[in-house]
Design a protein around this nucleic acid. Structure first.
Ligand code: ZN
Ligand code: ZN
Ligand code: ZN
Ligand code: ZN
Lengths: 162, 162
DNA sequence: GTTGAAAGTGTTATATTATATCAATTAGTG
DNA sequence: CACTAATTGATATAATATAACACTTTCAAC
């Protein structure tokens, strides 16, 4: 989960990674000011770590990095930072991996969908609208009111295909 | 997770529950004979318990019931039975709940999609084809080869809506 | 039928993921 | 400043899951 080639990510396309990180952090900074959210040191750094890694990170992997940088060393430190990031749309939890990834389209609240490469661990967040899909249609027809959807697809990314 | 009104399930429609269980077990029996799968006592009973409950059951909840009936009492007993059932399409794992549910359309291999009621715990498995959806389309376009999809929607079932 | 290989069962032990709670600190408010 | 709410960090524990071993059962080959 940890040692993934950053080249392979962000929709499996290469990109200027440090600029990508800086921009995402600045964006988060703006959103937090707008919404009067407290973007504290741990939270900012947690998001930075997720962004740098640019792939799903387990809570304990994040915790280890935070600990190494002088933050707390116990599970709640990581879980609370993650809860803040997820709640406010800066990161997402990947259910299939019990892991967390920085959001690729922060700002607007959205239902994310993920493509997860089983070979290299790359993760791509796609802007699929869940409310437009067949599942949502089925739900509406049966009177089920959807509040949140989870869409994750496992497989092989373009780089890892034979 | 455990005490759910069976009336609320199976697509949130009521049905003859004991007949439903019996039929599903018979169906599993047939499929196992066809495919030369060993439908042992623990496995059969595990499926029976999932069917009777007719809602998602945690591995340890299943384990407790198996233990009460004289099977093993240690985690691997439940996890192995579940692995067999899931692998062969008789049950599914609900990632969002870390729980397991009997398949509503056994026989054919399929990518299940679920509607999960956050109020009463009811679960409906819908026959949505994942490969036809927008996520699959996006994947194809970017060269990603999907091997398996997870689709879970949380919300309120018809019975629980105000 | 006996035998050997493969699969299944149950246990012990341990790994991994996650939360409840409390004391101390910090940030925002009047 | 004084008050309150939010945040942090630690302790402790809960919940979920797997590795590895000994023993038994199944099944096919002989
Ligand atoms: Zn996102
Ligand atoms: Zn890959
Ligand atoms: Zn199914
Ligand atoms: Zn309900």
């Amino acid at each position: 989960m940890a040692d993934v080639n950053p080249q392979a990510l962000l929709g499996f396309a290469s990109h200027n990674h440090s600029a990508c990180v800086a921009e995402a952090l600045a964006q988060a900074e703006r959103v937090c000011q707008e919404h009067r959210l407290r973007f504290t040191d741990v939270r900012r750094r947690a998001l930075g770590i997720l962004l740098e890694n640019h792939s799903a990170l387990g809570a304990y992997e994040l915790l280890e990095r935070l600990d190494n940088e002088g933050f707390g060393s116990k599970p709640p430190v990581a879980y609370r930072a993650l809860a803040f990031l997820v709640k406010n749309g800066f990161a997402h939890r990947i259910e299939k991996l019990n892991a967390y990834v920085a959001c690729a389209h922060p700002g607007a609240q959205h239902d994310p969908a993920f493509l997860i490469c089983n070979d290299c661990g790359a993760i791509a967040e796609t802007p699929v609208s869940a409310s437009a899909g067949r599942l949502a249609q089925t739900a509406r027809q049966s009177g089920f009111q959807i509040s949140r959807t989870i869409m994750e697809a496992e497989g092989q990314c373009p780089q890892c295909r034979p």
